[in-house]
Amino acid sequence: MKFSKKDLIKLYTNLVRARTFDMLCTRLLAEGKFVSFYHEGAWGDAAGVGTATFLRKDDILYPHHRAHGFPHMIGKGVDPKYYLAEHCGRATGCCSGVGTVHALFEEYGILGQSAILGAQFTVSVGWGLAAKKNGTGQVVVASFGDGTLARGTWHEGANVAVLWKLPIVYVLENNGIAQYVSLEKAYPLKDMASLAAGYGMPAVVVDGQDIVAVAEAVGEAVKRARQGKGPTFVECKTIRVTSHGYGSPHMVDGEQRDMNMVEELKKREPLSMYEKNLLKQGIITKEDIEEIAKAAKEEAAAAEKFAMESPIQEDASILDQYLYAE
């Protein structure tokens, strides 16, 4: 799969925007402006942006909880200010300020999330079945982490997805850690792609720090799904350089994380690696980079202003409206 110059710049721009929002979210949480928590995603953000940037607007996306799905939603084309306002409990948020970390953007195929990890595996089967029956050509993309894959729902979903040849792309962002537990302590294998292969699902392992590799692999998987060839599993090897959630202990397997190792991981920072290649290939200039960074900062500042100036949601009956249909 080859990308045009425009596509490559779009990937870069979305990655810069996702990174800028990650920094903004971290700051707003630290300043006490969030009603929720925040799971930082910097350095592990290429997988989400690479996954979502070339999806169709009506494709269905279940974003990852890491970076609260900002990279995925920015990639999909969602205006992140409504999701930011949601985190701040504002009435202008995408769930009217009562959903905190939950995203809902129906017109962009983001149909809700659950705090219960692993829900994506089973709801995506329903969405995939609907897409197939309706003949819309829509594809369902479910993003999740290595810890999430340990849920039994994965096996239930994968089994039926293959059996019924559903148009689903499973994108694992394998950062080798789930909250405070390392992959080594959780699985007898390292490449989760083998689990998908066990169901006869085509599976591929890519460098999740290489945004082009992710976009290429997900692009091929989406193509298969649209052609009616069934589900695909894309395993992106990525990293987590922060603690699990902002302010939580930076521990693994009962001990402090080895910060020398974390520094080693940081060498694979995806934005600067991509930027270097784009410059070498003459696809962008230093001036383009400055311009993109400036635009992202302005977008983030405007989103912050929007959220802060929006009224705090104080009408509890909103919850009823979300819970009960007429």
Binding site: L189, K190, D191, A193, S194, A196, A197, P202, A203, V204, V205, V206, E216, A217, E220, A221, R224, T232, E235
Partner: peptide, 22 residues
């Protein structure tokens, strides 16, 4: 090599995952 047998050719060229346990 733990990384061999898992690349994109599983999607575009009918390759299969070569598991490390094998």
């Amino acid at each position: 090599n733990p990384g061999s047998g898992k690349d994109i050719r599983r999607l575009i060229a009918c390759g299969s995952v070569f598991d490390n346990n094998e």
